[in-house]
Design a protein around this nucleic acid. Structure first.
Lengths: 205, 205
DNA sequence: CTTGTTTTGGAATGATCGTTCTTTTAGCAT
DNA sequence: ATGCTAAAAGAACGATCATTCCAAAACAAG
């Protein structure tokens, strides 16, 4: 009969996630992971095929533990612009909770440092980005519907605009300790969405 | 009497820059650099203290060879919104010239993957971001002056907004091969700047 | 307590890293 | 041509990497 594991393996992934997130995949060594997780080399390799497999597990855990809590409301049925505002508020609160420079988003950090030939990891990152895009499109579509609706092209453009803005927010959060700047950005961004969604004539070019 | 070097060392840095840019600092090995630059290990170490010193030289070269050609017009005296539009056009043209996913900006890529304790590299990256911020503020200030002027706070907010938008553009360019999306984003972004700079009443909250 | 099984901690391993060093090659002055 | 000097090439080095393996500890069952 299998014995219960003394240290739950959810902790292993949680601690590995934190280490990968703050330090970056390539910089983290197995020795670092052993030290930070408190699990021996044998223990890690008994549950994961290797460093990369553990990292992939961390990417999934990141989705569940980090992304879902702040993003689920945007994905919810009936979500609108208020849901997007709430998402940004939660991001800003998270930025504020940390001191000093931010550590950014694990997915976007990884995207900037994976080897070009690492298709498997890239696929996982693409999944994350697709998830965000789908969520934002959901909220934007709902919001536009309350104001008479927008054509598909404009909706797609606003979805991409939102996605790119979020990329910028995460990227820039790594360079500043001043959350006020990020908050100002979010205000301008939300104003723009509000205008584009509710005053479609304003977007004529 | 010293002999003239057979292969100019500007080529060494140029080729190393390309390698670091496409592959990322930590993934690139000295063996890769030897192969990609055509310069032997001895040759590299005779000119640079090590891998990190060579990389720092590449960051400087990146400024001269990549950033300055597309950004100098924004930094020029009298630059305005047109200069920012031109900068974006040159970025988009660069995206379009490449096929497949983009490789992003060397500075922003590096920012996402340096070890937390690498203060020296971080300082170089901060210099780049400060340069961009200063350039954008220059152009935005000039442009606002033609329309009656904006207060310092609003100008600062627009500068940061521009900076964050550029971060988003570079980051997202790594995830898509469709330059049309990036172009749409730029259009919306420029519209926003135009509105904020020339219709200050629109920004009342 | 004893036995059988599982997990653990860390030594061992082969590969690869950044760096150094030695040998070979090539250029210039005499 | 010859001797001198400096650069080029890559072999060699120690350190460190991810991974494997094994002996010892910890637990469950009898």
């Amino acid at each position: 009969m299998p014995r219960a594991k003394s240290s739950s393996r959810t902790e292993l992934v949680d601690n590995a996630l934190k280490t990968f997130w703050t330090t970056g995949y390539h910089v983290v060594s197995m020795g670092d992971l052993v030290r930070e997780t408190g699990v021996s080399r044998g223990g890690i390799y008994s549950d994961f095929a290797g460093k990369e497999a553990l990292f992939h597990a961390c990417l999934h855990r990141y989705q569940d533990r980090v992304v879902t809590p702040v993003f689920a409301q945007v994905e919810a049925e009936g979500a609108g612009l208020e849901a997007i505002r709430g998402y940004l508020d939660r991001l800003l609160a998270r930025f504020e909770a940390n001191q000093g420079f931010g550590i950014g988003c694990l997915v976007l950090n990884t995207l900037a440092q994976i080897a070009p030939e690492d298709q498997q990891t890239r696929a996982l990152l693409d999944q994350h980005i697709t998830r965000l895009a789908t969520g934002f499109r959901n909220a934007l579509t709902n919001e536009a519907a309350t104001a008479g609706g927008l054509d598909e092209n404009e909706l797609q453009a606003l979805t991409e605009f939102t996605l790119i803005s979020i990329h910028g927010l995460w990227s820039f959060s790594r360079t500043t300790a001043d959350v006020t700047l990020l908050r100002q950005y979010c205000e301008i961004f939300l104003d723009l969405l509000q205008t584009r969604l509710h005053s479609p004539q304003a977007q004529a070019r």
